[in-house]
């Protein structure tokens, strides 16, 4: 081997290590941040219970009021927040990689609002009260219908514009059907319940919610998390990806099923929480070198961190009524969307 080739190889190794170092550092920071936020979310709440009591209640197994709060209220809320955030972050990163479009997001393509519709119908017809599994299943059915509709409307090679328009159409349809359910709600109380639920929140979510949603969200995250290499290849174009051994048909189903599982089940128990899937991958894109595969797991972790932070915020902000989580993520996310649009506009000039 010549000296020059060895030099090049040494250089390549150095550069590779450097790039990996950046994404590694980001991942490390997230790994440190995540347990801190999870603990904070667990310790913060309206009931002023000392942290020591909460923790001892959690681990001692005694039936004290503190243990009850720890087990029945704080723990499901914190865990559900982490899971839902992770699911939305992962789905956003995977959809962006698959559609090769940094504006793709579960709520923008109508998956979230359709999942909401499914869940609203389950609540409306009282299915969720009789069968606990009905809620996530209805949410996933809604998300599945949205994904198939988007596929049919926009196709795989859709332009940004076509995709956004198809998403808008699906959102509008789901939104008006949801409004119809509100309109026809049997009594004002039921209407208010649906409306509040639609705003998206982790408040008053129980272990039952956690147990019915968690398996689906986790399954969805795992399904999407395994698509990294195929998504990398897809960035080079469909035919090139095919020539590199990627089964495009399998990848498409993988993305659809993973998104339906994670987003459908998440939205079904928390209501629609938008923009996590848009914001998180965007923030991480540069540190991960823009490579779709390196974006997936950090996005899941960062999604969990973001949602936990937002959920801590809504509890700390001194408002009369607790702000709804979906409202907060929307307030953070919408300006972000404007920012992305402005950037896209500059590129198009």
């Amino acid at each position: 081997m010549t000296a020059t080739t060895q030099d090049i190889r040494a250089q390549c190794r150095g550069r590779g290590a450097q790039a990996a170092g950046h994404s590694g550092l980001a991942l490390l920071l997230l790994l440190i941040l995540f347990p801190i936020l999870l603990t904070a979310s667990f310790l913060i709440g309206p009931a002023d219970v000392p942290a020591v009591d909460l923790l001892s209640g959690l681990f001692s197994g005694q039936a004290s009021p503190a243990a009850l709060i720890a087990f029945e209220i704080r723990l499901p809320r914190a865990l559900l927040g982490a899971l839902v955030g992770a699911g939305l972050g992962m789905a956003g990163a995977a959809l962006q990689g698959y559609l090769r479009n940094p504006l793709a997001e579960p709520s923008l393509i109508g998956a979230s609002s359709s999942a909401s519709l499914g869940a609203v119908l389950a609540i409306y017809f009282g299915l969720s009260a009789t069968a606990p599994l009905a809620l996530p299943v209805a949410g996933m059915l809604g998300a599945a219908l949205a994904m198939l509709l988007i596929q049919g409307l926009a196709g795989r090679d859709a332009s940004v514009l076509m995709l956004i328009l198809a998403g808008l159409a699906v959102q509008t349809l789901a939104g008006s059907l949801t409004s119809l359910a509100l309109n026809l709600a049997p009594n004002p109380h039921a209407a208010l319940e649906i409306a509040f639920w639609l705003l998206g929140s982790l408040t008053d979510r129980t272990n039952d919610h956690l147990l019915v949603a968690a398996p689906f969200i986790i399954a969805g995250i795992l399904v999407l998390g395994g698509s990294g290499r195929a998504l990398d290849a897809l960035g080079l174009g469909e035919r090139t990806a095919g020539s590199m051994g990627v089964d495009l048909n399998r990848l498409r189903w993988r993305i659809i099923i993973g998104t339906v599982l994670s987003v459908g089940a998440a939205v079904a128990v928390t209501g629609s929480i938008g923009f996590v899937g848009l914001v998180v991958p965007h923030l991480l894109r540069r540190v991960t070198g823009n490579q779709p595969s390196r974006l997936l797991w950090p996005s899941a972790l960062a999604g969990a961190c973001l949602l936990l932070t937002a959920d801590i915020l809504v509890r700390l902000l001194p408002t009369n009524d607790e702000l709804k989580l979906g409202v907060v993520t929307g307030l953070i996310g919408a300006p972000f969307f404007f920012h992305l649009l402005l950037k896209t506009r500059e590129r198009m000039r």
Binding site: G16, G235, G237
Partner: peptide
């Protein structure tokens, strides 16, 4: 592929 391109701004080495 004809007109092969990369959708993401990856480095050449990547």
């Amino acid at each position: 592929e004809q007109g092969a391109n990369c959708h993401w701004p990856l480095t050449v080495e990547r």
